[in-house]
C-alpha cells in the first residue's frame, strides 16, 4: 500500500473534520490501527486544527458559564450517572442477589401456603356450616316426631279407654239424634253403676266463637246441667256425674254454659 499517497489523498483531513461517509470512516479507522504512519498523520492534523481553533478562540459572554452550569447541574440531578454510586464488589453483589433470591423464594412459598390455608379454612368452614344445618334439621325433625308420637299415644289411650268403656256391660249407650236428621250426631255413655257420664262427639258442627255445647240430663221432667263440652275434647269427654236420668239433650249455649237450657238452640237429644 502506498502510504504517502493515502496520506496525501485528503481522506485523513475529511475524517478528522467529520466529512467522511460511514464506509470511509470505517476504512480510516481500520487502517490507522494497522499503519502507525496513518495514525500519526491523523494526530498531526487533529493537533494542528486544535491549535488553530485555540488561536482563533472567541470568548463566550461571561454570564453564559453560570447558565450552562445550572443546566448541567439540573441535568445531573434529573439523570444521575450510574458511576456516582459506588459499584458493589462482584462477589458481594452475587451474594446479595442470591440472598434476595432466597428471600424471594421464601416469600413466594409463604404466600402460596397462606393462600392454600385460607382456601382450606373457607372449605372446612363451609362444610362445618352445612353439617351444622343438617344436624339442626335432624334435631327438629326428631323433636316433631317425638311430639307426634306423644299425640298418637294420648289419642291411642283415649280411644282405648273409649273402647273399654263401650265394651263395659254396665254402660248405657244413648244415641243423640238431631230433630231434623237421622244421623247419630253424638253418643252419650252413662255408667249405671258409677253414674259417670261421657259424651262422644260424632258429627256435631264446630260451634261459633263465644259459644259452647252444653249437655243436659232430663231428671223427673227437669233439665239438669251435666256440664259443657270442652272445646279441646276431640274423642270422649267426661261430663258431670248424674245419679238418675230419663233422657239427655245437647244445646248450644254461651261460652261457660247456662243454668237453664235455651231449648231454641237444641241440637240433639236421646232417651235411655
Amino acid at each position: 500500500m502506498d502510504l504517502d499517497a493515502y496520506i496525501q489523498s485528503g481522506l485523513i483531513e475529511s475524517y478528522v473534520l467529520g466529512l467522511t461517509s460511514a464506509e470511509e470512516t470505517a476504512e480510516v479507522e481500520r487502517l490507522r490501527s494497522q499503519y502507525i504512519e496513518i495514525d500519526d498523520a491523523i494526530n498531526d492534523f487533529a493537533l494542528n486544527l486544535e491549535k488553530k481553533a485555540f488561536e482563533n478562540a472567541i470568548s463566550p459572554p461571561p454570564e453564559l458559564k453560570e447558565k450552562i452550569f445550572a443546566a448541567i447541574h439540573n441535568d445531573h440531578q434529573a439523570n444521575p450517572p450510574a458511576l456516582v454510586q459506588p459499584a458493589y464488589d462482584e462477589p458481594t453483589l452475587q451474594a446479595r442477589i442470591r440472598n434476595i433470591r432466597t428471600w424471594r423464594i421464601i416469600a413466594a412459598a409463604s404466600i402460596i401456603l397462606f393462600i392454600v390455608s385460607a382456601a382450606l379454612n373457607l372449605y372446612f368452614y363451609n362444610q362445618y356450616n352445612d353439617k351444622q344445618e343438617a344436624y339442626q334439621a335432624l334435631l327438629s325433625e326428631r323433636e316433631s316426631l317425638q311430639a307426634n308420637n306423644q299425640i298418637y299415644q294420648t289419642q291411642l289411650k283415649e280411644w282405648q279407654s273409649a273402647a273399654a268403656m263401650m265394651a263395659d256391660s254396665t254402660m248405657a249407650t244413648v244415641k243423640m239424634r238431631s230433630p231434623k236428621g237421622k244421623d247419630d250426631a253424638a253418643t252419650v255413655f252413662w255408667n249405671t253403676l258409677s253414674k259417670d257420664v261421657y259424651v262422644m262427639v260424632n258429627k256435631l258442627p264446630e260451634p261459633r266463637t263465644g259459644r259452647q255445647y252444653q249437655l243436659w240430663a232430663m231428671v223427673d221432667g227437669k233439665h239438669v246441667d251435666a256440664g259443657v263440652l270442652d272445646l279441646s275434647c276431640t274423642s270422649v269427654c267426661k261430663m258431670k256425674n248424674i245419679p238418675k236420668a230419663e233422657a239427655f239433650a245437647i244445646t248450644l249455649e254461651k261460652e261457660g254454659g247456662n243454668k237453664v237450657p235455651n231449648l231454641k238452640a237444641l241440637y240433639v237429644m236421646g232417651t235411655i
Binding site: 472567541i58 470568548s59 450552562i68
Partner: peptide, 15 residues
C-alpha cells in the same frame, strides 16, 4: 467539567 469549560469554551464557541 469546570476546567473543561474554561479551557475549551472559547475554541468551541469560535466554531
Amino acid at each position: 467539567f469546570n476546567y473543561l469549560y474554561d479551557h475549551y469554551a472559547g475554541s468551541l464557541y469560535s466554531v
